[in-house]
Design a protein around this nucleic acid. Structure first.
Lengths: 333, 333
DNA sequence: TTTTCTTACCGAAACGTTTGCGCAAGATAT
DNA sequence: ATATCTTGCGCAAACGTTTCGGTAAGAAAA
């Protein structure tokens, strides 16, 4: 048998609304009575019934995370950081492991106030669905993609990220770079870098990977066996990087001796690889703190203004890139 | 403005309890009216208010996951599998990224019916707290540790797991094994294997790691530089394995050429390592399906019987163990 | 002292469901 | 034909909380 505020009220000799106010720190209760009530509540192990609470005021102070499959822990670390920031501001975070449509229903039924939706490739329909149904509209923060009008948005400047990776590799003397990944902003940054730093070009220097596909030996064969072999790779994600490394292992190719490698997305694991990998990607901390600024500011400020920001990326230099600067003479020979 | 069953009732020209019964498939509603109501509800984008629902009947059909930090994705994959199994049985899963006491409060407030609590080292106090407060008592499934009376429990036979690893290494001709990890069931399995297969013993063949600590060069120095060097390692977790591999890299030690290696806990990533690692550990699928059997059976069967089972472990043979059988003569020389 | 203002509390209503009970109308048995 | 059973639905109450309006009692002002 659960103990309710009515039980406490009876025990304290007051009405139950008084108990409610006392426990919530609301005005209209004398300090003596408040203390007495709090003591009784604690003694009776009172646990508020949030269902009842939420039935009347529709606040839950909680955030739901709709999160892509955690490949390579990037999203895990980001989720963790968001949870910490949220806790600091008195907000609860719950997360669903289900796909967006299902997750949406669950969050709706479980009363989260706001959702943070990292729009992974292929999830745009769910975002549209939200808008159309006006489900969490105005209480949704889109991240990573799917930017739209009248919706909070945090983007990632992937183009500059890859561009900076190209710049770095060019600085190290690399002239033949290959990008492995999807056709996306990242590719744009890649080609822009190629043009700007007047690097070599070959049609094979872009290895397209369709979402869901893997880096196959076939797709890499010509590149690795033919002429005009690259000296460095920029790889779209950790998953592809693993596949590439597997291929390299099979062919006894060493990093960074034979090829240099920069991986997109920085996660702690990259540092612990057999050869610590140089990465480029958004800062998890910045992503998380910006997200919570937006989520909390919205109540604070007067007018509903839609946030629309873009997080820059950082280059993490480790051990998977070899400098060619001392060998330039050799290279040009 | 939310649409409620009263809105639907008005639209359908019936009373709101009738709508409730219709939508829940309860008896007492003619098939014609039921269809009409369902159609209207769908047209009006009706979403049931779980708070109200919860207020009257205390069921939500949802499960909360209290989960250790996802090191090495084992818990991520297990969570994912549990979520899938739950979805198949019409149950929702939500997960918290917070620590147990906080997670507990959140789940309590967010109406989860049952919790699955993987009792990581150091989390026993939270389990005791649950029992004491009778919070989710009877609706909690403990996993991995913290077994107790009158509580559903799924354990992992870690002792046999490591024992089997020892047996396998012995089969391959290894006689000098080292276990790196905590003092635990796993160590028991290790020593049992050592005794049973009459393997060599040296005090250095157990490298204790306190929780939270790392595999340091100091702790390994004597072992790697002294006499009686082992030929194989069994490592307690992926984390330690990474640290060990890092150390090996530094010393230019190759796997499995110089040392063989078996890692506890099987996760997909182990297969994708530079050298695919041989592992031993519980089956994620079995863990998940057993969990849901328990969670759902409890309603089904008549008497409340407390589940108390133990999941066996599997050996996944990959590339990190070298056989010494052909070299036995050499070894004995 | 009387009037006004403030404080501290109580009672009633509301949030959106489900459930138990009662009551018509139609179907079946007598 | 009347009596009984069944079906389909409405009405009212309940779940535990917050909030709104009201009302005493006491404090400050006249």
């Amino acid at each position: 048998m659960k103990v309710t505020i009515k039980d406490i009220a009876r025990e304290a000799g007051v009405s139950h609304p008084t108990v409610s106010k006392a426990l919530n720190g609301a005005p209209g209760v004398s300090e003596d009575i408040r203390k007495k009530i709090v003591a009784i509540a604690s003694r009776m192990n009172y646990v508020p019934n949030l269902a009842a609470k939420r039935l009347v005021d529709r606040k839950t102070n909680s955030i739901g995370l709709i999160w892509p499959k955690i490949e390579g822990l990037f999203f895990y670390h980001l989720g963790l950081q968001i949870q910490k920031e949220a806790a600091n501001r008195g907000l609860d975070v719950i997360m669903s492991l289900a796909e967006p449509p299902e997750a949406l229903r669950i969050f709706n039924e479980h009363f989260v106030d706001q959702i943070v939706f990292w729009c992974a490739p292929g999830w745009q329909p769910s975002v549209d669905f939200i808008k159309q149904r006006e489900l969490f509209h105005g209480n949704m923060l889109l991240m990573g993609g799917g930017r739209m009008e009248q919706t909070h948005y945090i983007g990632v400047d992937r183009k500059s990220a890859v561009y900076e990776a190209v710049r770095y590799l060019a600085d190290q003397g690399h002239r033949k770079l290959t990008f492995i990944g999807n056709r996306s902003d990242k590719l744009t940054g890649f080609t822009q870098g190629l043009l700007e730093f007047r690097l070599d070009y070959h049609e094979r220097y872009f290895v397209p990977i369709e979402p869901g596909e893997a880096v196959t030996e076939d797709s890499m064969k010509e590149l690795l066996d033919g002429d005009n072999r690259p000296t460095a790779f920029i790889v779209d994600s950790q998953t592809y990087a693993f596949e590439l490394l597997k291929l390299f292992r099979k062919r006894k190719i060493r990093i960074p001796h034979d090829y240099s490698l920069v991986v997109y997305d920085d996660i702690p694991e990259m540092e612990r690889m057999d050869v610590p990998l140089t990465t480029v990607g958004p800062s998890i901390d910045r992503l998380a703190s910006s997200a919570l600024d937006i989520l909390t500011d919205r109540d604070g400020r007067g007018e509903k203004k839609w946030a629309d920001i873009e997080i820059g990326c950082e280059l993490h230099l480790r051990k998977s890139v070899k400098t060619l600067r001392d060998e330039l003479g050799v290279e040009n020979a």
